[in-house]
């Protein structure tokens, strides 16, 4: 029983990272109907921004709340800037092109970031210094670490913030309008270009934060290809929850994280990836719109 709760806690911590990344996939899919393959690599760049800032702040030998906060904000800002730039330079000129072209461009962008990252940052693994000291916390049978709690806390705060923004502000309403129907939103006076750019900015900022959290999860270890697998899994999470649905992405992320942790705990750990992708195929078979998505028939 105690291992069960322990694994559940580990799974929720991993799942909340997936959920943060999945949000970016699902939001961009909502407004552009595009699988933004470059999203996971934006997360990687966020992690590298965190690495450079944390190293610059000398946070390794001297961890503090302030330096942690600055590192987080820098990672989010760096990723957001990159997201906006990608949207402006690559996706916007292709807005009227076929969706296939857009998808290929997204793939190209993803590869460019991965391999360009290897050239710019170097292919070797690096270690993000601990911006906050990692300590073990024992609660009864439960073994937690400060980093795991931070992962959970940051994710919850960011997701609540997103929930508030999307539902309670005018800009958030405009964003929902664009994801329902771009043309109708434009007719209602919504500046759709701005909203699409903003969607990329928010999604990428969440990915930037997730980049640092992934680094926490891996004891600081980062490399230019670190985005590939978390990205694929977060994408599966977005599909599982219903792509286009924000709450679906959160739910899907948690479910995938928990499922993976349990499979790794009770079966050979190499089955961990297989379970994720099997879930994906199963969702497509049984409920293609995902858990919380609505399946809309295509109209002429």
């Amino acid at each position: 029983m105690s291992t069960f709760i322990q694994q559940l806690a580990n799974g929720v911590s991993l799942g909340s990272i997936y959920a943060l990344i999945a949000l970016g996939y699902t939001m961009v899919f909502g407004v552009l109907k595009l699988i933004n393959f470059a999203h996971s690599d934006v997360m990687m760049v966020g992690a590298y921004v965190a690495f450079f800032v944390a190293t610059g702040l000398n946070a390794g030998p001297d961890p503090s709340i302030a330096s942690a906060l600055i590192t987080f904000l820098a990672a989010m800002a760096g990723a957001a800037a990159l997201g906006i730039a990608i949207e402006r330079l690559v996706y916007r000129p292709l807005r009227s092109a076929s969706r296939l072209s857009l998808l290929i461009a997204a793939m190209g962008m993803s590869l460019l970031l991965e391999y360009g990252g290897q050239v710019v940052f170097g292919p070797q693994h690096r270690r993000v210094p601990d911006v906050i000291t990692d300590e073990r916390i024992v609660l009864g049978d439960l073994n937690l670490t400060v980093h795991k709690l931070i992962i959970l806390g940051v994710s919850v705060v960011l997701m609540l913030g997103l929930h508030f923004f999307v539902n309670k502000t005018r800009t958030g309403t405009a964003m929902r309008a664009v994801s329902q129907n771009v043309d109708a939103a434009k007719l209602m006076g919504v500046n759709t270009d701005f909203i699409i750019g903003l969607t990329f900015a928010i999604g990428s900022a969440l990915a930037g934060a997730a980049g640092l959290l992934v680094a926490f999860h891996q004891q600081g270890d980062i490399d230019p290809l670190m985005g590939v697998y978390p990205g694929l899994k977060a994408f599966v999470a977005a599909v599982l929850g219903g792509i286009g649905s924000i709450y679906g992405a959160m739910l899907g992320g948690l479910l995938i994280g928990v499922a993976e942790t349990f499979v790794a705990a009770y079966l050979p750990s190499s089955f961990r990836d297989t379970i994720t992708f099997s879930i994906l195929i199963l969702v497509l078979l049984v409920r293609p719109a995902g858990l919380l998505g609505k399946f809309k028939p295509e109209k002429v």
Binding site: L94, G108, M109, V119
Partner: peptide
């Protein structure tokens, strides 16, 4: 830099 060139090529061609 093969993959960097490929990916840049891909984006330019699509654009």
């Amino acid at each position: 830099y093969r993959m960097v060139i490929y990916s840049a090529l891909l984006i330019v061609i699509v654009l």
